[in-house]
Amino acid sequence: MNKKRVSTFFFLLALLGISFVLANLAGGSELKISKALYYLFHPRASGIERDIIWQIRLPRVVLGLLVGAGLASCGVVFQGLLRNPLAEPYTLGVSGGAALGLTIGVVLAASGFYLPLFSIAGALISIFTVYVIASKRQFSNPALILGGVILSFLFSSFVFLIFSISRSEDVHGILLWLIGDLSSTETQLIKIIPFFILPGIASLLIFSRDLNILTLGEEKAMHLGVNSKQIKKILFVIASLITGACVAVSGIIGFVGLLIPHFMRRFIGVDHRFLLPASCIAGASFLVLCDALARIIIQPLELPVGVITGVFGGIFFLGFLLKSKRWEIF
């Protein structure tokens, strides 16, 4: 690993630490920053202010770290497998599929451990569908992105359909949550979600060398000794599992998987052995910072974090479209 990479990793880790502390200090309640800092580093203290930090803010920040890392790593993997830098859980409609799966799960009154299984199933079905559509058009940008957008429309229509015909109280909460929100109060869900996301990311890291080679295409990868079809399937399943788990706790948070890998490629290069961990760290920092911003920007109200990432991502996406040459898009 060269010097530039080492220093980039140091920078990213420092950024992660700073984001973690900052995100814990930001919030709607009347809690002085100095006090918040004190309680953050003194977990054994008592009182309501300690509880605000340790029971409300900290779990939310940790959730943000997990989801940010998860979405960014899925972006890297989808881009590598589909050989397209615009692929990510949101643009491919995988998040939408997971959301539909989850909505169905809620209507069927599934809970706890079973709920993420519904969103993971939704994610798997949609990545399979997008893959089949795009493979007929050589995975070109329009095929992938249009396919993803159309699927997203379709899925959200189904979600609204279910929303309209269902009288269940639970379903109504879904509407806001669809925009992407980290303020989930389902503590039971928050406790089990790391067991999906962390092993998922770890197993993606194992395949980073295969992923490098798979970007050369299925056939060339096979000639270099990668069992392309098998490894592709494994990676799609793991990435869907992570996306599904992320959507189950935080709804559809768009563009993290698009923005983060794009910038990380510039700083750390395209080798997935470095790109994947760097994107995880950067994605985690980015999402908790966005969430902190969402909490303080229109005080005393809170925005869903999906609005913030949507604005950043949308602007970037537009810029990309305007800047790129015709052949890059089509």
Partner: peptide
């Protein structure tokens, strides 16, 4: 023959090789 074993014996240079990412 398992792909990795074959790749130690046979190298293939296809007619078209698209490399979408900027590897060095």
């Amino acid at each position: 023959i398992e792909p990795r074993r074959l790749a130690r014996e046979v190298a293939v240079m296809p007619q078209i090789l698209e490399v979408p990412f900027a590897f060095s």
